[in-house]
Design a protein around this nucleic acid. Structure first.
Lengths: 207, 207, 207, 207
DNA sequence: AATGAATGAGATTTCATTCAT
DNA sequence: CATGAATGAAATCTCATTCAT
């Protein structure tokens, strides 16, 4: 099976990552063995090592792909409509797929990545970026909103962006572990908070 | 030859758990070897196995201890002052020690536990409880506040409790991975949210 | 589709062997991978396997080629001049190229072959021949010299041939590993020995 | 099996090295698997790795032990008798055990070490020393002999030492691979050479 | 003839756990 | 109760070789 197209190679890489995600979501990075990934992917060990240098590199590639995916999600949500409702679109983009099985699988792996970031510097770098960049994008958007007067001048845009992201991450966890979880009430609370910020007196919001 | 006091036994167990936490916070559960724990604790492998049946049991004990600790934190915060300011006390109890090094160590292990819950049923049970019980305590308190009229009647107490906890969990992650993190602005946003809930019209809060 | 000249095939084989020698001289037979040889030769794995059935066959071909080369060296040195100075010519033929980089590369592979002969019967056969045949050639030459009276009658021609070869092999090793090595003094010692043998009383040389 | 004596540990190390030597002499370093060593030693893989960090370290330890052994052999031969016959004793010490099966095993491993020195820097260091140090010891002895007038003043002591060692190494190889090998004639040739050096005119021996 | 992706047996090493002392 | 050497199943990764194209 010689000289195949770059697209073929890329799709093989993706296949392997998808198989690995299934395994990692089930068992976590370390208890998952290469044999598990071999079984799930239907390839041979050697084939996998033709595409990735090590298990670590698979994990790091998943982290990178995940990060890129989220960045796109934010960027698209922001750009794909009137600026006034951008935050709503971001909110929906993230919260809505908390219920998609496919996405839950990936969110479980995100939780693994938060844990893995503690020991793997490469993963840590990507996880840091996955916190920093969305916060920056969101907070730029909020500053824009302030300029338009849609949000109180005194509001601390960066903190608000940060807080919204924190809430989202916390909800990811609850989606997994809290037996009473449902999305809708949290959306309303988020809106309530944003509404409150919109009208907040300066003193309440100083950074 | 045996015959030592139960207190001695308990303090030995605690020593081992403390040593394990140091290791787990650094490397995660699975990459940490029993040898690491042996080194950190200064005990021998045999000694450790006299107190715990397995590495899994150490992890589960840490999860249980952690859970119990948090439950106490909520209970104390609620009971140790006027009910009107209980939520403030809970908020402070949790947020303030996000900056204590000792506590950060333990929070890092909490992140590991979220990941581990995916594969270890025993840990999952404890993690579930650590989501459910605090939510229940908080939401009971909020319902109490509603009865007193301190919060709008229409507010969805359970969702609010849940949301506050989600935000806290998200902040634990940011404390670790976001390079711009500081607590204070988030406290203010939390207060803003609670203030908004207190005065919210029923329609905005229907569960 | 095949149909290429035997010369082409032979030159391809030689290319591969040359590339392999570079690798083997650097890393030894077993640590050298086929991938290394692929890289060094610029061919593909499949191409190499069209010329050799296995890595072992490459090693054995190198051994055979090496052996043949040395046999020629002795034969030429002996035949290319007056018999009286044949031994000098052999001596020079072998010692002089101990300083050629090309030849050092090949000598390094000879050392590998000595080691490999321990486990690979085919290589062992060739290595044995590479000890036996030159010894035989040399010793026949010495017997000739005895008949002419150039060497004492009592001299043990076979042992002397053997000893001269031993010294040469030892010098190959020293050339590689002894930091103080230089050829010239050893040539003189060899001459001194041969001179002594020429005039030795029978008693000193009985086989 | 806790807390055993350092002697016990040392003897276990030696056992492992002895088992490894048997395997290495049979198959060479790289084709020998850890499983082979496990089988030969009767220990478990884990046990072996309690004493050596890697297979490489086993090889290096064998090299070091071998080197030390030879150094002792030279030192003892030199010091254990009248200086006038020291060279004879060295000669005998080395040549005589070329026929001992135990020693042949070890010599086979020496050949492996010469090959291995090409790629393993640690082994190379030891092999270099095993060439340099004996040469130095021998040549100091020869210089002493010159001072006493037992050897011609003009003789190049260092080259002679070097040559004698080369011959010995070459004989190690022949012992293994030459089907006609026997020691005795070579001893006589060595003596003849030394005798010739003893009486050589200065011009023939200038370094 | 050439290519190079795929194979899969097998190599080295680790590590949770045991148990003789 | 403590020790730590020993165990051995299993993990990650390699690499000679094949074969569809």
């Amino acid at each position: 099976m010689p000289k195949v197209s770059p697209e073929y190679l890329e799709s093989r890489r993706a296949e392997i990552l998808d198989a690995a995600i299934v395994c990692f979501a089930r068992d976590g990075f370390h208890p998952t063995t290469m044999k598990d990934i071999v079984r799930e992917s239907g390839l041979s060990p050697g084939a996998i090592y033709n595409y990735f240098q090590s298990k670590e590199e698979i994990i790091e590639s998943i982290a990178a792909r995940r990060h890129e995916k989220e960045r796109q999600l934010v960027l698209e949500a922001i750009s794909k409509g009137p600026i006034a409702t951008a935050l709503d679109r971001v909110r929906d983009a993230f919260l809505d797929d908390l219920d998609s099985p496919q996405e839950r699988l990936r969110r479980r792996v995100s939780v693994q990545l938060w844990a893995e970031a503690q020991r793997n510097p490469q993963v840590r770098k990507i996880v840091r970026r996955s916190f920093d960049e969305p916060r920056k994008l969101l907070s730029e958007m909020l500053i824009e909103a302030q300029k338009r007067g849609a949000i109180a001048q005194g509001a601390n845009a960066e903190a608000l962006a940060s807080f919204v992201i924190a809430a989202f991450h916390g909800l990811v966890l609850q989606r997994e572990w809290d037996s009473h979880f449902s999305i809708e009430p949290h959306k309303q609370l988020l809106d309530l908070l944003l509404g409150a910020v919109a009208g907040a007196p300066e003193s309440a919001m100083a950074g």
